[in-house]
């Protein structure tokens, strides 16, 4: 068991790839936003890459361990410490019974991941242990962790002293600027050439009104093609309205003039167009971007986006680890 002393900011149990197969009932996959860092945390402690771990957002938790185990912390730099003694991230570390793990506020990046040998053993809901906080599904009692809770951990065996080499870690930016890959479509033909050019050449500011359901962007106006105005009235009155349709995960959803990137806990359908889609390989960047930072978008083909995802998956394996 691990006891929660301080919860941090909506710290939640997630597994990867999450709750898959229920999109047609309105369930998002949930899961870690930066699955690159998440998978490495698991691999470091000897787990399957997708085992249930903790996602810490901006402000980390304080946890009390009642048994010896091995843990790893990856992702955003939250200066983890055991009984007040700082220890390095991106490596497996032995924890003794009755030690306290504390993570602070994120100095670099937005989300850190804690994996424990064996993984968390909370009850599965629809095939996943991931937390969908908004609807109260998965995790512990459906929500992010709370002070006083006991988090069940499965039996596991980890080896301390393993390390993810620098060159295999995601490059978490410190200059407040991110280049995010996007694929065109499904509704890019609703945006006129000037609008497309503006989207791809502007710096978009990530709003603080962003969470695991959607990332709101601030930037220039959108302009539309004839298609957005000349349509049956059941589409709705705004140029960005369309007859309700399914949303892909990562959709850049145009609600009026405000683009919202639909992320891990986002809605499955609705009545706005999605001119571009952020592919899965770029999600880790969204997970590490912070409010007020700038996003630039770079157009890639579907094939290139698929190649990038494959390269990340091939990295997040035990063979990459070295001795610290």
């Amino acid at each position: 068991m691990i006891k929660v002393l301080k919860a941090g900011l909506e710290t939640s149990i997630q597994d990867y790839p999450g709750r898959i197969g229920y999109w047609n009932q309105g369930f998002p996959p949930s899961g870690p936003m930066d699955s690159w860092s998440f998978r490495f945390a698991n691999v470091l402690v000897g787990n399957q890459p997708g085992a249930a771990g903790l996602e810490c957002q901006f402000l980390g938790p304080t946890l009390f361990f009642d048994a010896d185990t091995v843990i790893a912390v990856t992702g955003a730099d939250m200066r983890p410490a055991l009984d007040g003694e700082p220890f390095p991230m991106w490596q497996s570390v032995a924890v003794r019974a009755r030690q306290t793990l504390a993570l602070g506020a994120a100095r670099v990046g937005g989300r850190a991941y804690i994996a424990v040998a064996g993984g968390f053993a909370n009850e599965e809901r629809l095939g996943s242990r991931s937390t969908f906080n908004k609807a109260g599904v998965g995790g512990i009692d459906g929500h992010s962790i709370k002070a006083g809770q006991d988090l069940p951990v499965a039996e596991g065996r980890g080896t301390p002293g393993l390390l993810v080499p620098n060159e295999h870690r995601p490059d978490i930016r410190t200059d407040r600027t991110w280049t995010i890959e996007v694929c065109a479509g499904p509704n890019d033909d609703w945006i006129d050439d000037a609008g497309k050019k503006r989207f791809l050449s502007s710096a978009w500011t990530l709003s603080a009104k962003s969470d695991r359901t959607g990332f709101r962007l601030q930037g220039p106006e959108w302009t539309f093609t004839e298609k957005a105005y000349n349509k049956p009235k059941e589409h709705g009155s705004l140029p960005s309205n369309i007859i309700d349709h399914g949303y892909p995960l990562g959709a850049i959803n145009l609600a009026g003039q405000t683009p919202i990137i639909l992320v891990n806990d986002g809605p499955s359908m609705g009545g706005f167009i999605n001119p571009y889609t952020v592919p899965s390989a770029a999600f880790w960047k969204l997970g590490q971007a912070r409010p007020g930072e700038h996003l630039h978008f770079r157009l890639v083909s579907v094939a290139e986006a698929q190649r990038m995802a494959k390269q990340i998956a091939e990295r997040c394996v035990r063979e990459i680890l070295v001795n610290a």
Partner: peptide, 8 residues
Amino acid sequence: PAGDRYLL
């Protein structure tokens, strides 16, 4: 096409 994993 809709990203690397979806088709509409």
